[in-house]
Simulated assay, not measured.
Amino acid sequence: MSEAVLAQLMLQGAGEGADLATLRAIAEEAGELGASRALVRLGLEDAAAAKDMAELRELLGAWRDAKRSAWKAAVGWAVRIGAALLLAGLAARFGFWDWVK
Rank of each mutant, 00 (worst) to 15 (best):
A7D: 13
A7H: 13
A7K: 14
L9Q: 13
L9A: 14
M10E: 10
M10P: 00
M10N: 05
M10K: 12
M10S: 09
Q12R: 11
G13M: 12
A14H: 08
A14M: 08
E16I: 15
E16P: 09
G17A: 11
G17F: 08
A18N: 14
D19P: 00
L20T: 11
L20W: 11
A21T: 07
A21S: 09
R24M: 13
R24L: 13
A25I: 02
A25V: 05
A27H: 04
E28M: 06
A30C: 01
G31F: 09
E32F: 03
E32Q: 12
E32S: 06
E32C: 02
L33N: 08
L33Q: 10
G34Y: 07
A35L: 13
A35I: 07
S36Q: 13
R37T: 09
L39Y: 08
L39P: 02
L39W: 06
L39T: 05
V40D: 05
V40T: 06
V40L: 08
R41C: 09
R41K: 14
G43N: 02
G43A: 00
G43H: 03
L44A: 06
L44W: 03
E45Q: 14
E45A: 15
E45S: 14
E45T: 03
D46C: 01
D46Y: 00
A49Q: 01
A49D: 00
K51Q: 10
K51D: 10
M53F: 13
A54N: 03
E55P: 00
E55Q: 05
L56K: 08
R57G: 05
E58K: 00
L59K: 03
G61W: 01
G61V: 01
G61N: 00
A62S: 03
A62K: 05
A62L: 04
A62W: 00
W63D: 01
R64E: 12
R64Q: 11
R64C: 02
K67L: 10
K67H: 09
R68Y: 04
S69P: 02
S69N: 13
S69T: 07
A70M: 06
A70W: 08
W71M: 12
W71G: 05
K72N: 12
A73V: 04
A74H: 04
A74R: 10
V75K: 15
G76A: 06
W77P: 01
V79W: 06
V79H: 04
G82K: 01
A83G: 05
A83N: 07
A84N: 03
A84Y: 05
A84C: 07
A84T: 11
